[in-house]
Design a protein around this nucleic acid. Structure first.
Length: 349
DNA sequence: CCCGTTACGGTTGAA
DNA sequence: ACTTCAACCGTAACG
C-alpha cells in the first residue's frame, strides 16, 4: 500500500513501484518538445533523469507516454486451439511422440516458433488434458470465460513488446505489417476488451485520488503501437487524463483539461534549481499546473466528441537527439509503419 | 555536466 | 484464498 510516496533526491514525490502520473509523463514529453534538455526537465519536474530518459525514449519508440503493462502473465501458448490440435494428432496416431506433435504444430501452422509449446508442455497436455481421449469431450476442463482471441496467431502477434529492453522478435518482419504492429497485451484481456466493446458501465470507475489510474497500466499498454501516426498525438493526450477508460474509449475523448500551453509552466532559461517542494500527497506536490491537471479528471463520456488535433500540444514522436526546435518533424508514419486505424479508434473519430 | 544503462526494491495481476 | 512469477515501475548510481 503505497499510501504517501517517497521523496527523491530532487525533492520530487514518487511511489516506489508505481508509474509516474500521466500528467507528469505528459509534461516531460511536452517540455522535451519545446526543446528543453532532459536534464532540465528532470530538475524542473523533479523526476530522476533516468526516468525522464526512459519516458522520452519510450515515447520516441512507441508514440505513447503511457507506462507499460504491469503485472499479469504472458499469454499461454497452450491455447485451446493448440490443445485441440494436439488432441487431434493424438487421436489420429495414439503412438505419436510429443516432439512429433511439436513438429506438426509448427508444420501445420498451428503455432509458429514463438508460441510453440515445449515438448514438456505437450507431454503435460497429453497427460493432464487429453489423458483419456474417449471421455474427453471438452479439451479443457476449465475453459476461460472468453477464449483467447485468435489463439492460432503467432506468438509475437499477441505479445510484442513496446519496451526497448525487448527487441522486436525475429520473424516479425515476415509478418503482415498491420498485424505485426498490433499489440494486444496482456493476453488476459477478454475479447470484448480487445475489441473495445466493453460495457460502458465498466468504464465508470470511481475516480479517486490524485494518484493516477489504478487500472491504467495494463490498459494503457494496449494498442500502444496501434495508433495511426497522425492520431498519435491526440491519442496519447487523450489517454492521459482519463486513465480509467478503455484505450479505445479514452482515445476518443475530448482532450478536455489539457494544458493548452505549457509556457506559463516552462521557464526554460530561468528555472530555479529546486522550487520549494510541497509534498502533500504523492504527486500532489508537483507544480500547480500539473496537479490541477492531474486532479482535474473531468473526463467525459466515452463517446465524446471528435478529436481535434489543434488541441494537442504534442508533436508526434521525434528524435529528441536531433531535435533542435520542433522543426523537422518526421512524419510519424515512418516511425510507425502500422498506420492502420484501429476500428474502434476510427469509429470514435 | 549530460545522459544511457542497470541494480535494486518495489507493485501488480494472471495463472 | 493464497502463492508464484514475470512483467513493469522510478530511483540512485555508475560509466
Amino acid at each position: 500500500m503505497p499510501a504517501f510516496g517517497e521523496v527523491n533526491q530532487l525533492g520530487g514525490v514518487f511511489v516506489n513501484g508505481r508509474p509516474l502520473p500521466n500528467a507528469i509523463r505528459l509534461r516531460i514529453v511536452e517540455l522535451a518538445q519545446l526543446g528543453i534538455r532532459p536534464c532540465d526537465i528532470s530538475r524542473q519536474l523533479r523526476v530522476s533523469h533516468g526516468c525522464v530518459s526512459k519516458i522520452l525514449a519510450r515515447y520516441n519508440e512507441t508514440g505513447s507516454i503511457l507506462p507499460g503493462a504491469i503485472g499479469g502473465s504472458k499469454p499461454r501458448v497452450t491455447t485451446p486451439t493448440v490443445v485441440k490440435h494436439i488432441r487431434t494428432y493424438k487421436q489420429r496416431d495414439p503412438g505419436i511422440f510429443a516432439w512429433e506433435i511439436r513438429d506438426r504444430l509448427l508444420a501445420d501452422g498451428v503455432c509458429d516458433k514463438f508460441n510453440l509449446p515445449s515438448v514438456s508442455s505437450i507431454s503435460r497436455i497429453l497427460r493432464n488434458k487429453i489423458g483419456n481421449l474417449s471421455q474427453q469431450s471438452h479439451y479443457e476442463s476449465g475453459k476461460p470465460p472468453h477464449p483467447p482471441p485468435q489463439p492460432a496467431l503467432p506468438y509475437n502477434h499477441l505479445y510484442s513488446y513496446p519496451s526497448s529492453k525487448v527487441p522486436t522478435p525475429p520473424g516479425m518482419a515476415a509478418l503482415p505489417g498491420h498485424m505485426a504492429m498490433h499489440r494486444i497485451w496482456p493476453s488476459s484481456h477478454s475479447v470484448t476488451d480487445i475489441l473495445g466493446i466493453r460495457s460502458i458501465t465498466e468504464q465508470q470507475i470511481s475516480d479517486s485520488a490524485s494518484f493516477p489510474c489504478a487500472k491504467l497500466e495494463e490498459r494503457s499498454a494496449i494498442n500502444r503501437t496501434h495508433f495511426p501516426a497522425a492520431a498519435a498525438c491526440s491519442a496519447l493526450v487523450n489517454g492521459v487524463d482519463n486513465p480509467h477508460l478503455e484505450p479505445e474509449a479514452k482515445y476518443a475523448q475530448t482532450p478536455s483539461g489539457l494544458p493548452n500551453t505549457v509556457s506559463s509552466y516552462v521557464t526554460a532559461g530561468s528555472i530555479p534549481p529546486y522550487p520549494p517542494p510541497t509534498p502533500v500527497s504523492p504527486y500532489m506536490g508537483f507544480s500547480g499546473t500539473s496537479s490541477a491537471f492531474v486532479s482535474a479528471h473531468t473526463w467525459q463520456a466515452p463517446n465524446g466528441s471528435a478529436l481535434s488535433p489543434h488541441n494537442c500540444d504534442l508533436a508526434p514522436p521525434i528524435a529528441f537527439k536531433s531535435m533542435a526546435p520542433a522543426r523537422d518533424i518526421h512524419p510519424v508514419a515512418n516511425i510507425h509503419p502500422a498506420a492502420n486505424i484501429h476500428p474502434a479508434t476510427a469509429a470514435a473519430l
